[in-house]
Amino acid sequence: MLTCREFADFLMAYLDEELEDVQRDEFEQHIELCPPCVHYLATYAETVRLGKQCCVSDDGPPPADAPETLVQAILAARRVR
């Protein structure tokens, strides 16, 4: 029987479907019996989702503030190469 600590250690491999059959069965047995680990699994997955959502502004197009000074610097850098 897996401990909660081992469950947490194997979590990413489980989500990536990289566990051997035997390990996966043990992992899934643990989920059946342990509510805190069910919550851990759900909030871990939510963390991954939130990381993406909160860092990438996918509400609309990227900020259209291509700073003209930067654009000019990039174009100039090419010319002097």
Partner: peptide
């Protein structure tokens, strides 16, 4: 990182968000 008791249980069991 999460903290664990000697027996492998979480020091603070996870709860839903």
């Amino acid at each position: 990182l999460p903290r664990w008791q000697e027996d492998g249980h979480a020091a603070r069991p996870a709860a839903p968000w």
